[in-house]
């Protein structure tokens, strides 16, 4: 090792990192201490929020929506990404760009027409009505992501499987997917997070059916009803944010790599 970093530089580095780490977690810690009623800890705010905010039901709804969106979007993305990444056919590039364009379409641009379309199809205030648009949004990311994975998968693997007489279907499920687990896991956690956190679509689509509200929508309604009962509000916010944060703690690499990998891998 040549010129070692000076002590001062090292100290500055840690100081900067620590200050900004504190800034990042400070609001969350403040929220947690408010919710717990520190310095006299009690779980009353959590039980109160859980009961009054109907969060058992709303978390269940969110879980159902997330599961359906993740499963459907993943399967569709894997199938389409497989074809676009490993097969040569007319219109493949165009199709890819069509999916890619979806990544740039903000929810704000589609939510209003979607509301009227779903209403005339009788799908507003239903779970499928909330799931389908999110499957479509996720597919646009998923196709992009899986295509990149399939293109990077070793060609020899595909060739060998084909020489063994395997169909393209068998090659996909028996050969490529087992190897592609990390890429798929990244896709799954990202889609799950986006779906869990989605608010605008839930607000507009679940506009009258209280029983089908998702957790974020439930939180916003709860906030409207308990404007200044901050202890309970903070508890409710933690309840809604917790599932994603917990998964994030264990799979942070997948979250960060997925959300930033364009730059990180370059």
């Amino acid at each position: 090792m040549t010129p070692a970093t000076s002590r001062a530089e090292r100290a500055t580095t840690y100081a900067v990192l620590i200050v900004f780490a504190v800034i990042a977690v400070f609001p969350l810690l403040a929220v947690a201490s408010q919710a717990l009623g520190l310095p006299h800890p009690s779980a009353a705010a959590f039980t109160g929020a859980w009961r009054k905010g109907h969060f058992a039901r709303y978390l269940t709804n969110s879980l159902i929506v997330v599961t359906a969106v993740v499963v459907a979007a993943s399967v569709l993305s894997i199938l389409a990404g497989y074809a676009l990444g490993t097969m040569e056919f007319r219109g493949a590039t165009l199709l890819f760009y069509v999916f890619l364009a979806g990544l740039m379409v903000p929810t704000e641009a589609i939510v209003v027409p979607l509301y009227f379309d779903l209403r005339s199809a009788g799908l507003d205030n239903t779970l499928p009505g909330l799931m389908l648009p999110q499957i479509a949004q996720s597919v646009s990311f998923g196709v992009f992501w899986m295509r990149a994975y399939f293109r990077s998968a070793p060609r020899s693997l595909i060739e060998a499987s084909r020489i063994d007489g395997a169909s393209s279907w068998t090659t996909l499920w028996r050969v490529l997917l087992p190897v592609g687990r990390p890429a798929i896991l990244t896709m799954v956690v990202l889609i799950a997070m986006w779906t869990w956190n989605e608010f605008l679509l839930a607000l507009v689509i679940m506009n009258s059916n209280e029983d089908l509200r998702t957790a974020p929508l439930g939180l916003s309604i709860f906030q409207g009803q308990h404007q200044t009962e901050y202890q309970m509000l903070m508890a409710a916010a933690l309840i809604v944010a917790a599932p994603v944060v917990l998964v994030y703690v264990f799979l942070q690499r997948h979250f960060i790599a997925g959300m930033l990998s364009g730059a990180v891998k370059e």
Binding site: L79, A83, F89, A136
Partner: peptide, 23 residues
């Protein structure tokens, strides 16, 4: 990479349908 394949359209179709209808 991959010989020309008609079956590719079948793989893309389900995703494309949902994507076209809801986005």
């Amino acid at each position: 990479p991959g010989e020309p394949r008609r079956v590719a359209y079948l793989y893309v179709l389900p995703a494309l349908l949902v994507y076209a209808a809801f986005l």
